[in-house]
Design a protein around this nucleic acid. Structure first.
Length: 345
DNA sequence: TCTGGGGTCCTAGGACCC
DNA sequence: TCTGGGGTCCTAGGACCC
């Protein structure tokens, strides 16, 4: 009887790789994809090619900063439909491999596989994806989703890594807590203030102490993360979104609140159109305003009855807009709709 | 560094009801 | 007159991830 393994497949520099595939003359050059592709505009890096990363350019970095670090990089606009199409081909390839596939995003998926040689299967995955799409990927092998996900980074690029209970502490114990999937900068700082700096230290901390300091749900969960404990159930059931949203950062801050109202209605109508296309009524609407220089506020309301009607969603968003401070300049506007859970047939 | 756009989930206070 | 708990819903904000 073969063993169940979890594989985490992650495409290498996915967005940049898709761009290079359709423009082969960019191969080997630093490529930075983000915003509208203009490094003088407001926007951040979505993905930098490995060549660009050599200059210190990385995801989430302002495009202006990226341009300063790497003036010779090729800057390209984000082309979401192109990445979606590539992603679909990758996921179809993965599903053809006799594995349970759980999609995590454009460029990642978990595979549940029954095999006695997970490394051989991982190589098979890499060859298949490369053959079908021209894209390289790295594969993490684990005895649960958490360990498989964390393993992938150690295999990058184009490689493999196995992380299980057997080598968990050898690999992870001395790393900072933000190396864990679910602990970011804020939480790792709070942990340092409690004198918990490493994964090993977090794993050894008393669960009641963590519950008291970080909450009854999150505290014990962080401790389980540090111990590498998690589900090993790969779930292939189709993704059902909880909400849909549209937001825009303006190149110049808005000062005219008549224009703010116009933009909020426009965003609300886009959201309504997205909902109508999915046949999922909104039950709650949220308007987001980011004042200049960078201060974000939200106002929300529950609709009297669920609806996909653009005028009703736009009216709700417009009403919420009156609750903000008209004296202030606006950097970003967003409209979010929460959807009802789909009714079981 | 001057900070996108799309998501998910958790927390906490107040209202309201029993 | 002053005062209980508990449950649920609504709202705002925050942390994290890709």
């Amino acid at each position: 009887m073969a063993t169940m393994w979890v594989l985490h497949v992650d495409l290498d520099q996915f967005i940049a790789a898709v761009e290079v595939l359709r423009r082969p003359e960019l191969a080997g050059r630093p490529v930075v994809v983000g915003g509208r592709g203009d490094p003088t505009e407001r926007g951040v890096v979505s993905t930098a090619s490995y060549e660009a990363r050599e200059f210190g350019v990385g995801s989430g970095m302002p495009l202006r900063t990226a341009a300063r670090k790497c003036p010779d990089a090729v800057f390209l606009p984000v082309d979401a439909p192109a990445y979606e199409e590539s992603s679909t081909r990758v996921m179809e390839t993965l599903r053809s491999l006799c594995a349970v596939v759980q999609v995590l995003g454009w460029d990642e998926a978990f595979l549940g596989v029954e095999t006695d040689d997970p490394e051989a299967f991982a190589h098979h995955v890499q060859r298949s994806v490369l053959g079908a799409t021209g894209l390289h990927c790295s594969v993490g092998i684990g005895d649960n989703l958490l360990r498989a996900k964390l393993a992938t980074d150690f295999g990058k690029p184009r490689g493999l890594f196995r992380l299980t209970q057997d080598n968990w502490y050898a690999v992870m114990a001395d790393r900072p807590t933000h190396a864990l999937w679910g602990i970011g900068k804020k939480t790792s700082k709070r942990l340092v203030a409690l004198d918990i700096c490493t994964v090993g230290e977090l794993a050894e901390t008393d669960a009641h102490h963590l519950a008291a300091e970080l909450g009854p749900t999150m505290g014990p969960w962080y401790r389980r993360l540090a111990r590498g404990v998690g589900s090993s159930q790969v779930d292939a059931s189709p993704y059902v979104a909880r909400g849909r949203s549209r937001e825009t950062t303006f190149q110049q801050d808005l000062t005219d609140w008549t224009q703010v109202q116009v933009e909020v209605r426009r965003l609300a109508e886009q959201v309504a159109e997205d909902l109508r296309a999915e046949g999922r009524p909104a039950i709650r609407v949220t308007v987001k305003v980011r004042y200049a220089p960078f201060e974000t506020r939200t106002r929300s309301l529950t609709l009297e009855r669920p609806t996909t009607e653009p005028p009703q969603i736009a009216d709700a968003a417009a009403a919420l807009t009156t609750k903000f401070d008209f004296e202030r300049k606006v950097r970003l506007l967003g409209v979010h709709a929460e959807m009802a859970s789909p009714q079981p047939p």
